[in-house]
């Protein structure tokens, strides 16, 4: 195996590698960022649970050496809620794609955000259903092309951050795979936060999205992310016309004082025992 890096202690590298993802897919980069965040926070890997649904991004629990659970389509947050209530000391990381988290599991997503249960939800937003062959998803931008939208998508897309804030999540942030250092810091803050933390990570699908939208290589897609993202501090000084078509990255909401579901539940049990 040659020289070893500390990150390999968190990977099932003897059995599962190389990964199934296409060359240049952003999910591997995000997986690295999650593992590095867990490493730098010093969590024991037996105290971390990674839950996923179905999709490209949901293959991630196969490769990481945490406690992992691969569930049915869209139900990752429902399973994670159960684990968190049964064993409140565990750190829950839910990885979903945009289709899994917002379309099929959209109901679970808004209600977990409303309850403000202590789960870190990493929403990998690549604007397409990758595993099933390139259908347009709730976050495909208007007029973008997909295999089921050959003349351009006519539907408006979801703003995940606005949706998360409106549903009541206590930590909401957006980042992109291009901003690798910022992504690591935001994931670290989201893991530390007590309450529902939603991180919308703009990712790239070079094979099914990029090729149809004039971005032929993963590098071009990453440079597109660089051009189309604006930091939240810079965006505050710009006019709405300048920000049209751009994604604002940064932390939108960080409220540690909101009542968290598991601790409220424990308080209820304690008050009834008295």
């Amino acid at each position: 195996m040659g020289p070893k890096s500390p990150i390999y202690d968190y990977l099932r590298y003897k059995k599962k590698f190389p990964t199934v993802w296409c060359p240049g897919c952003g999910i591997g980069t995000i997986m690295g960022a999650i593992i590095r965040a867990v490493m730098s926070l010093g969590y024991d890997k037996n105290d971390v649970v990674m839950v996923s649904g179905i999709g490209c991004s949901s293959r991630m629990p196969a490769y990481v050496d945490f406690n992992t659970l691969h569930t049915t389509h869209g139900r990752a947050i429902a399973f994670a809620t159960g684990i968190k209530l049964a064993k409140p000391h565990l750190k829950l990381i839910v990885v979903t794609g945009d289709g899994d988290g917002l379309a099929i599991g959209g109901n679970h997503f808004i209600h977990a955000a409303r309850r403000n249960i202590d789960i870190t939800h990493i929403l990998i937003n690549n604007s397409i259903y990758g595993m099933t062959g390139g259908q347009y998803s709730p976050t495909t931008p208007r007029r973008a092309f997909a295999y089921t939208a050959p003349y351009g998508n006519i539907e408006p897309d979801f703003d995940v951050v606005e949706l998360g804030i409106a549903a009541g999540a206590s930590f909401v942030a957006r980042t992109a795979v291009y901003h690798i250092i910022q992504m690591g810091k935001i994931i670290e803050k989201a893991l530390k936060h007590k309450g529902y933390s939603l991180v919308d990570v703009i990712s790239q699908c070079p094979v099914l999205y990029g090729r149809l939208n004039k971005m032929r290589s993963p590098v071009e897609m990453l440079l597109w992310q660089k051009e189309h993202t604006v930091d939240i501090k810079v965006a505050a000084k710009k006019s709405p016309e300048e920000l049209e078509g751009k994604y604002i990255v940064g932390i939108f909401k960080d409220d540690p004082d909101m009542p968290e579901y598991v601790s409220e539940y424990q308080k209820l049990i304690d008050s009834l025992k008295e």
């Binding site: 890096s5 590698f17 990964t19 993802w21 980069t29 960022a33 590095r36 690798i180 690591g184």
Partner: peptide, 13 residues
């Protein structure tokens, strides 16, 4: 090694 999606680059010993 931060950007590599496949964990194929690591820091040398």
């Amino acid at each position: 090694w931060l950007r590599c999606p496949d964990f194929a680059i690591i820091k040398g010993p």
